[in-house]
């Protein structure tokens, strides 16, 4: 790939595919941790809301 093709619309050559080695994505990992925390809070808040209604079996 040439340098001026840095922007979006380009397709790299298969030979450039570097396989599945270690990658560095700390931002994404942080985002997913935020997702997990929101998930846990929302999920247990709903159990709490459920615990307040009439008993039923």
């Amino acid at each position: 790939m040439t340098k001026e093709e840095k922007s979006g619309d380009l397709i790299e050559k298969e030979s450039e595919h570097r396989g599945d080695g270690l990658h560095h994505a700390p931002g994404t990992f942080t985002l997913t941790l935020i997702l997990l925390v929101s998930f846990v809070v929302y999920y247990f808040a709903n159990w709490k809301a459920l615990a307040d209604v009439w008993h039923v079996r």
């Binding site: 990658h23 994505a25 931002g27 985002l31 997702l35």
Partner: peptide, 11 residues
């Protein structure tokens, strides 16, 4: 997928 898609963008 919620990790791999944005991580690919980040990388």
């Amino acid at each position: 997928h919620g990790y791999t898609v944005p991580a690919a963008v980040e990388v």
